[in-house]
Design a binder for these strands. Structure first.
Lengths: 240, 240
DNA sequence: CGATGGTTTGAGATATATCAAACCTCGTGG
DNA sequence: CCACGAGGTTTGATATATCTCAAACCATCG
């Protein structure tokens, strides 16, 4: 039996474009791999040899300058696609933020398979277009928003993206609010990583956390946990 | 005779994926349109009803905050694709920076045509992936680079992107250097627009221009013209 | 416990923003 | 043809958000 049959992202990842037989073929060229938090799957500037689907966990995409400044240029969640198909080079590193599980393909195998299955390519196109939209909205944050606005925007986006779709309709109690995102969640980022997403320093991020808490927009039960106390206020702080 | 036959971007735009007959069909659903500098083709948040290929000219993609801060999130050149296919909303405005000419399609017509022609979708996918790479590299600039580095990076990118491919092999004299980009070019941006690309203010941009000139990296024959005097130095200033 | 790595808080430095004025450039009309 | 005006640009002086450097703090794990 193909591993795909029991895959929890089967219906949300680009694989949803495939029927049972096609999926069996794809399964033959792919393999699963577990990653521990902190482990890297690809490195910046490397030849593009692998692509993958995220099954579980959160990973970051990052680049940096010669002199060591780092910028996280994307964050991927279950069902997202990673890697650079149809091109020779990966422009950013990929590193697991939490323990993660991915479904890996050799790039050339995947490229060939995708070209032969337009429905799959179409899904990949839709996903890439959506990611481009999201990335461009992030440019507004990096270019024009204040530190406070950046952190507020970031927390709001996280609260939406961390919702596990399978659960979105199962609950709508305090754990998972169907409409507006999670009220409480665990950060898959350290303070330094948040700084690297927002283009700030760790100290500025920390100060904005304490400020948002002092103003009653959020609560911080522990370092890695955030509760949104006043969503309206947080949205106002995000200033879109 | 189809207008496409004489189109100067015929072999570089996504249309290159199509044969003569397919092109004739596409031509039936498209129309040309001229835009004057400053004219907008789409607005932020609008329903996505149009998509287009750029034939001639330079256009900006931009978003802003409620309170009027603006960020240019992309710049498109001849043969680039604009608009948001397969999605209901355009997340950014599209405005001509120079006089321009585009090949316009109704989005639903284009979507249908693209789905029926996988080779076209494939080209669009490659283009979207390349644009996503470029956009992510821009995030590093916005998140982590100084004003001087931003302007230097911007000028270097412009000098590459403004090369007219048709000429790239015809000349390699002082006008168009095949390898390293133009040595001298006209800015399709005002100072304010450059500020909006780089996430800076107009004054900071101006000061960095005069600094780069004083250091001998560039020359400014006029407000709208730039000559790269010392490319090495400019590259060093860009600090990648 | 005591060490260790991440985080928060503090004080001061600095790059960029802001506010304001002077300066070009170019088109217009006298 | 020249003066004028209007936008855009440059330069200057000052303010401020964020960074930098440094110390205190706190959880976690041996």
């Amino acid at each position: 039996m193909a591993a795909c049959d029991t895959c929890i992202v089967r219906n949300r990842a680009i694989c949803a474009a495939l029927d049972h037989d096609e999926l069996a073929l794809l399964n033959q060229i792919g393999r699963r791999r577990n990653l521990s938090a902190g482990e890297s799957l690809m490195w910046e500037g490397e030849d593009s040899i692998l692509v993958a689907n995220v099954i579980e966990g959160v990973l970051k995409l990052s680049t940096g300058t010669e002199d060591g400044r780092e910028q996280i240029v994307g964050v991927v969640y279950p069902s997202d696609f990673i890697g650079r198909p149809f091109g020779p080079t990966t422009f950013h590193g990929v590193t697991a933020l939490t323990d993660a599980r991915v479904c890996l393909f050799g790039r050339s195998d995947f490229d060939a398979f995708a070209r032969a299955h337009p429905a799959l390519e179409h899904k990949l196109l839709e996903r890439t277009l959506a990611e481009l939209d999201r990335t461009r909205r992030w440019m507004l944050l990096l270019g024009r928003k204040s530190a406070g606005e950046r952190l507020a925007s970031f927390l709001l986006e996280l609260s939406e993206r961390l919702v596990i779709p399978a659960c979105a309709h199962a609950f709508d109690d305090e754990t998972a609010a169907a409409e507006s995102g999670l009220r409480r969640f665990t950060l898959p980022f350290s303070r330094q990583q948040i700084a690297d997403v927002l283009g700030l320093t760790i100290e500025t991020v920390s100060r904005q956390f304490t400020r948002l808490k002092a103003e009653g927009a959020i609560d911080l039960p522990s370092r890695r946990e955030v509760a949104i106390v006043d969503r309206r206020l947080l949205e106002a702080e995000a200033g879109n």
